[in-house]
Design a protein around this nucleic acid. Structure first.
Lengths: 208, 208
DNA sequence: AAAAAATCCCCCGTTTAGGGTGATTATAGC
DNA sequence: GCTATAATCACCCTAAACGGGGGATTTTTT
């Protein structure tokens, strides 16, 4: 028979902390080693706890969840960390995953799903709602109703790569003067008068 | 009692197609309306099939899965599309999700997981392995051992925004000549001699 | 037929870029 | 203490690029 999965919960809200500890601890195959109200409180005991999975709140007093992540990974490199949060903000998700989190759960997630998720990350898979993935992707998608024509967009993209008129012209097999006219029109449409402003405006409105 | 979920499978490999059709069709609550070997073959019948979920192969003869996606979404806007593929290439995942796919399954995915996934996407959630998400994220992470100093990186980022020396200088409260020196050193380190080349090289190596 | 997009041309003056060569200061590593 | 790296500023130079005007043609789309 398999050993229980060792779990640590770091969450400042007492109700949620005890709730999770009870729910997860009651499930077969799961052992909640310890719970803490903050990372600072957990820091010295984590190594001794030897958790395989940590449920980590983002909003913590003192060291935030994001800040705690690399520290945790340092002492427990093989430990999987599941982030708990109320908000699904894009930046949070990015930061968490970039700092080594294994997954992301909102506090609305039902207990059964959390228990599933713990098992999944332990086995190498991972939970992640498609909505979160969509947010990531949407940040790459261009605005559908851009004031710029296709050609103008294409040229602005090259300009945003730092290319000069003549470099753009060569790449598109057109005259530098044509590139120039396009850039003039882009400036008119975006109401700017420099490359930097055009790039900034275009990026802000996701035209490029 | 609930209606069965109507499913269509589009997959050129006959073995896989029949295999999936059998496995999914045998599960309770799932009804495989039709199967096709290509999108071109399916195009005229899809509206009549009224599928709620489509399993769509990426590599198809004629119209590829990626090309088919927007067409499918046009006639069946509420239909969820799960992409089937052998390769987890970053570009494929991006394109698929950007074109409206609801999820992404590799062909190694066990049948039970596929059936789960169909239900999940139908109910609004979605399957997505954390590994895929990581690939997305990793494309944003900067190289840890960059040859560029912090200041150089910072300046190159501003240059990549189309800013001139004087604009960068103003923003960083330093002399344009200092900016220039930094840019020269960047060029040296990256072995380039133009802004466009520096930006390209830096982006290729994820320095910015 | 009208509008939008894409192409090219010439005027002008100002700014910028990039190569070369040098210096000072502070910080960090050996 | 010495050395390397980083960050700061200076002045030489030329050629290229930029942006504001003006106007024109052609193709595509509506």
């Amino acid at each position: 028979m398999e050993r229980d999965i060792r779990i640590v919960i770091i969450e400042d809200d007492e109700t949620i902390r005890y709730g999770y500890a009870y729910l997860v601890g009651a499930a077969e195959g799961y052992y909640v080693v310890n719970t803490y109200a903050s990372y600072d409180e957990a820091a010295n005991s984590l190594a001794a706890d030897r958790p395989e999975v940590i449920l980590l709140d983002i909003q913590l007093p003192g060291t935030s969840g994001i800040e705690a992540l690399p520290k945790i990974k340092k002492v427990l490199p093989d430990c999987h960390v599941l982030i708990l949060t109320v908000y699904e903000s894009q930046k949070q998700i990015f930061d968490a995953l970039a700092n080594g989190a294994s997954g992301y759960l909102t506090k609305a997630t039902p207990a059964t799903r959390i228990i599933e998720s713990i098992k999944e990350v332990k086995e190498g898979g991972g939970p992640m709602s498609i909505n979160i993935a969509r947010m990531v992707i949407s940040s790459f998608m261009k605005n559908q109703d851009s004031p710029l024509s296709k050609r103008e967009t294409q040229i602005l993209e090259l300009v945003a790569e730092g290319k000069s008129r003549s470099q753009v012209a060569k790449q598109l097999f057109i005259d530098p003067e044509t590139v120039r006219t396009h850039i003039k029109n882009i400036y008119l449409k975006l109401n700017v008068n420099s490359r930097a402003d055009a790039i900034r405006t275009a990026k802000d409105n996701r035209l490029i």
